[in-house]
Amino acid sequence: MLKRVIQQFQLDVLATSEVEDSHSSTVYKCTLSNGENVYLKIPFTKLKYQRELEAYEILKGKVSIPEMINYWSGDEECPGAFLLSELKGKPLTSAAKPTTAFQVGVLHAKMHSTQPPSEQVLNGMKNEFPNWSHFIDQQFYSFAEDAKYILDERLYQKAIEKFERMKQQLPLSDGPSFIHMDFRPANIIVDNEQVSGVIDFESVRFGSTEVDFSKLYRDFLSYDSSLYSAYQRGYNSIRPLIDLEKVLPFYRFTDAFNSIGWCKRRGNQEHALFLEENLARLKKWLL
């Protein structure tokens, strides 16, 4: 498949390497004969391809993202592919400084400031905002079908009861906004303390911003209160940040539960560490 995509884009490639930590696409870093680095991305499904394509069109000029140099709509064997420019730098880590966290807040808020386009018909991205409660239910109970094979019956039932109880306490939804659904350090690129941009748009939607903070908090903001504070200042410089204390507990809990279901779908052995981490988180919430 890689060879076919390289031929499709007529690239003169010196070397390729597969990018790790990409869970919904196959991504290759390619060094061209002129020394330039580009990325080839092959989504797992046609829907993920369509979401990514629309995201690049919608965010261009509004949010820092890679340049989409070219794209291919695929065929019977390939759902499609993208040729993307390189964002300079490496994924964000918890060792970042507050100045970087401030920029992450600005980036996130700019993305959330993007609303559904009135002039563009969307085939991949859905606007889930009008039925947000139903969307959250659908996500949770879909993953519950997988999680029940991992959790013992008592823990599983406790999770269902907690979900229904906490859901009733949520404030009014904030949106409709462009939401990433996987906004975590691995998808935020930083170069010498400067945020280069955000990548990976296979799961994007229009919906409520409240769902979009849990992974960033889990993997970055929770490590240092100064990072959390700087992020909030950066976000508020663009748009008002919702009261995270009211929504984070619910979404951190559902993120842990849904992640257990995700591991069951993708393979317990391949994602054993991630599974164990989320089992520990869920037990902390429930027990």
Rank of each mutant, 00 (worst) to 15 (best):
R239D: 01
T26D: 02
E164G: 00
Q7V: 00
L241K: 04
W132K: 10
W72E: 14
V38F: 04
R233V: 11
F163K: 05
L11Q: 04
M111C: 02
N268M: 12
V104S: 04
K48Q: 15
A159P: 12
F257D: 03
P98T: 04
L83A: 05
L287R: 08
Y231T: 07
D224M: 00
H180G: 08
G89S: 06
L244A: 04
I179L: 06
G89V: 13
M166G: 01
L286T: 10
D12G: 01
F129Q: 12
L11P: 10
S173K: 12
N268H: 01
I260S: 01
S113H: 08
T16W: 03
E52W: 14
K264Y: 06
L155H: 01
S73R: 14
S173Y: 11
I65R: 03
Q7F: 02
Q194H: 12
P66K: 07
I188F: 00
T100W: 01
M111N: 08
S196F: 13
E77N: 08
F163W: 11
L172D: 13
V5R: 00
T209Y: 00
F163P: 10
L244V: 08
F201H: 11
P117E: 09
I199F: 08
Q120A: 12
I69P: 02
I238Q: 09
K46A: 09
E67V: 15
T93K: 10
G105M: 06
K215Y: 06
S64D: 15
L275D: 08
K215Q: 12
M166K: 07
L287T: 12
Q10M: 07
K29F: 00
T209H: 01
F250W: 04
E145L: 08
E164S: 10
D255K: 13
Y251I: 13
D174G: 00
